[in-house]
Each structure stands twice: as C-alpha cells, then as structure tokens.
C-alpha cells in the first residue's frame, strides 16, 4: 500500500509540470475565444456574455494549471485567494456595467440576429 502511494506520488511529480502547463495553455485559448466573442458580437449586452467566459472558465482553468505547477503550499493558498477574488468581483462588476448601461437607456438588441453572415461590424 505504501509502495503504491509512493509510486503514485512519483507519478504525480513527473506529470504535474506538463499537465499544469497544458491546462494553462487551454485556459489561455479559452481567454482568446472569449475575446473573439467580444470582437464579434453585435451589441454591448451580448459582448458581456462573451467577456464572462474569460472571467469564469478561462481564469479557473489557468489557476488550476498554475496550482498544479506550484512549488509549495503558500502559492496554492495565493491562487485560491485570486480565484475567490475573481469569482466574487467579476459578476459584481459585470452587473454594475449592465445596470449602468440600462439606466442610461442603452437599448439591447432583441430577437434573432445573424441570419446574414456579414452584419457583424466588429469582425475584423
């Protein structure tokens, strides 16, 4: 049993750097996808949905990847603190932006968009 545990720990020591950096890369690609959504979507309210990909899945995948690469427990605690800060503040900030835009009278686009493929002006 102890032998198996030692083997598992050895395996984890070998595998954690490649797995951590692969997760970091995946999270960064998720961030870029969110940014592409911010560039493509037609109006402000829909852009907000794309921006929240970066805040949720991108941030958590990158932070999990960094936690796998962490040299000691102190770094993991700091990563958990960053995770909580991002997860508590980003919906509040999004709601503040949306509420301010709605109060100022910015009308959202309602109904089906994108029947024609060339009506997204920010696709460049």
């Amino acid at each position: 049993m102890a032998d198996l545990l030692a083997n598992l720990q050895q395996f984890f020591e070998i595998v954690r750097y490649p797995a951590g950096s692969a997760l970091c890369l995946a999270g960064a690609i998720l961030c870029v996808i969110g940014t592409i959504g911010v560039m493509r979507f037609p109006d402000f309210y829909t852009r907000m949905h794309a921006a929240s990909i970066t805040d949720t899945s991108g941030a958590s995948v990158i932070l999990i990847g960094m936690a796998l690469m962490a040299p000691d427990w102190l770094v993991v605690v700091k990563l958990v603190v960053i995770f909580w800060l991002v997860f508590l503040t980003s919906p509040t900030a999004s709601h503040a932006v949306a509420s301010a835009a709605h109060t100022a009278g910015l009308q959202p686009l309602i109904g089906r968009v994108g029947q024609k493929p060339d009506d997204d002006e920010g696709a460049a």
Partner: peptide, 20 residues
C-alpha cells in the same frame, strides 16, 4: 453554460437570439 457560449463565439454564422 460555457460550452454553449464558446460554440456561439466560434460559429461561422452569428446564430444568437438575445432576449430580456
């Protein structure tokens, strides 16, 4: 929900229907 929005971001035609 992330999966849905990622698909919406990457689709060639912008197939969304925003609503309140």
């Amino acid at each position: 929900a992330n999966w849905t929005v990622i698909r919406a971001c990457l689709r060639a035609d912008l197939d969304i229907a925003p609503t309140l």
